[in-house]
Design a protein around this nucleic acid. Sequence first.
DNA 1: CACCAGGAATGTA
DNA 2: TACATTCATGGT
Length: 209
Amino acid sequence: MEKLDLLDLFRELQQKYGRPEGQWRLWCKRPKTLLEREEVVIGAVLTQRTNWRNVEKAISQLKEKGVCHLAEIQKTRPEELAPLLKPVGFYQTKTIYLLNLVNFILQEYGSLLKTKRVPLDSLRHKLLRVKGIGPETADDILLYALDKPVFVIDEYTRRLIKKRGLNTPLDYFHLQQFCQTHLPRDYRLYQDFHALIVIDGKIDRGEKV
DNA sequence: CACCAGGAATGTA
DNA sequence: TACATTCATGGT
């Protein structure tokens, strides 16, 4: 595993694609406003097993209705929220997941800004107990909405790491540990790196970015 | 028409 | 622990 230099890989991808664009323009933006952070939280749930294009449609509808932030979503009933989430698929499930998450954040911490001050480990454990929030969604929120130094693992990351020489199949936690111990603990690096990994993965598969 | 997309929960053995 | 199933719209 020492043959794989992650920092070299990052520079290679950065050299190849430059600064991440599209969705990543917002997700990698620094600094972010509170409203932008809340949009990232929402997007993290909506994008589960779903093309980002569909997420954009739903986000637009949320914005038109003025419910693209946590306080308004919390006040919205599932029957009103669900139709707005239709484009993302699994919309009934995601309606509940999103409400679970928003209720957790606002009831436990009062606001997303206060949530940002919570220590990483404590916050991650609590996020994972919210029904609908698994490891990847939790880490999307921690890294991209709250600027916490956690490396996001997804199918693109697994494929790339495997392809670049790490042949031992690892579970989410251990692969994350591997990435984090072989990189400087810098959320900006983690944000850009993961974005570039996804972009590279899509292009590798013949998609446009 | 068939297939799949940044997942997660649930149930079975 | 390791799979299989379910949730569902929109693009190719």
